[in-house]
Design a protein around this nucleic acid. Structure first.
Lengths: 261, 261
DNA sequence: CGTTCCGCGATTGTGCACAATTGCCCTCCG
DNA sequence: CGGAGGGCAATTGTGCACAATCGCGGAACG
């Protein structure tokens, strides 16, 4: 995958209705737009114009406005010049900050999950990843793409849910949402996928065995390694692109450099 | 302080305009309404009706709607029957969860603040609390009210800011916002205020001295004590009010029980 | 040729009207 | 007297129109 180079929204039109019990336009726009942003499908400097979005989603400006306001409140959109909204581009420093927080959160997750002893769920997670390791030669390198980011996240999400602390799970999901905006552009290598699977199995095994300390240590190492990959890639991109100190926020590695306006 | 017993919104009317550079109605409504909710000024089952709020804030429904949607997205409002919005009342279990997370967050805060060595800021915080301890006999018991909750929060917020990690600070502020909805109703006793000041000084001293482990330990103990107070009070309220399992969410201790409709 | 100022288009903020849904009350029937 | 059904009021979701504001382009002036 690779986001459509320029106008991500052009061929994305579709009526908004579904068959769900009660789907409000504002809700649909919010969810779909958020996924697009978090999935990296909205180019860097792309201005989100209410009228335009209203056309795409086959609705009026009112529901679009509500969705945009919520996304702005979430911090996924920032106001550019003249009150226009653009996707908030994360910078390298804040990525480090996110990972710092994520480490202690994930440590707490495995400690709580160890206490909780929700064996059925934990073993299901372990089995899934055991199966994944077995299937790895079959699936080939196509598995190692942005899709693997979501697969990876699901591991951490399931663990967080098994921790029994809903607040914890919610914060972790939020952190991953933010981190993903950078991770999604990684071309994860096959050997990194293999390593990740191994690390996940280490962690889940320790949790199943009830060894909180080991699980926490494995988790910490795992997240730190992940942080290292992102940081490394970000540094690479910065030195590759331009010598300017804040170069990374200005344009991603293969991102189309959209002019300010 | 004690929120107006019945209709918190009745005598709260005022025009919405200010002299600030550019104040949108939606923004003003959002901020003020959020502060009212977080400050416990919106009674438990109180339905928030768009038209009513529009009158109070001297504006139309459109900005009110945007504010409500954002508050809903933040989790401060929940949808009741028929799509109406009510303040989200926290339950005891989620309070425990919030405190569990807050402990590891605060530990990270002091560890980072210790590393950061932003001495001027840290010493300013220490001086403020030293002065507070000295002034305590003067200020009398009036100091020990809901206002002290905000004073207490400011300590943790300043420390989080001094940690140099903006993400960390943001999460902590959010956690405190949620916890406050219960804490705000506490009648903090004078001796608890004294103890809190002492604990804060313990923490900040350790941070200034650069002893991360001691600071983390003090912080953990401090937050745990705070959690205990809230948990204790919540349990008291539940057994005092009604025997029903979920009794606490049904009505606060001195909260007017507003009929469903 | 550079600079400044004006006007215009684009876009957002706000108000309002209409449709739809929901819950409640009253009535009617068993 | 109790329960079911219909009508009504209240409230929210949506669309649209108008006003305000901002940025940009062009024209006029130095």
């Amino acid at each position: 995958m690779r986001p459509p180079p320029k106008d991500a929204a052009s061929d994305d039109e579709r009526p908004v209705g579904r068959s769900a019990p009660r789907q409000f336009h504002a809700e649909v726009v919010y969810v779909e737009l958020r996924d697009q942003i978090l999935g990296g499908q909205v180019p860097a400097g792309q201005r989100l114009v209410e009228e335009r979005l209203a056309e795409q989603f086959r609705t009026s400006r009112t529901p679009v406005r509500e969705a945009l306001r919520r996304l702005e409140g979430d911090g996924y959109l920032v106001r550019g010049s003249g009150g226009s909204l653009e996707p908030a581009l994360p910078d390298v420093e804040s990525m480090s900050e996110f990972y710092d927080v994520r480490i202690v959160i994930e440590e707490l997750v495995v400690r709580r999950a160890t206490q909780e002893h929700d064996l059925p769920v934990l073993e299901a997670v372990r089995d899934d990843w055991l199966a994944m390791r077995a299937d790895l030669p079959t699936r080939g390198p196509s598995f190692a793409g942005p899709d693997f980011v979501y697969t990876d996240e699901s591991f951490h999400r399931r663990l967080a849910t098994a921790s029994g602390n809903g607040v914890l799970a919610r914060i972790l999901v939020d952190l991953n949402d933010r981190i993903r905006t950078i991770r999604i552009h990684d071309f994860t290598t096959v050997d990194r996928v293999e390593a990740t699977i191994g690390e996940h199995l280490e962690i889940i095994d320790a949790v199943v065995l009830g060894d909180a300390e080991a699980a926490a240590a494995f988790m910490r190492a795992h997240v730190q390694r992940s942080a290292l990959v992102v940081r490394q890639r970000a540094t690479d991109a910065r030195t590759r692109m331009s010598r300017r100190p804040g170069g990374f926020e200005e344009a991603g590695p293969d991102e189309v450099r959209v002019p300010r306006r």
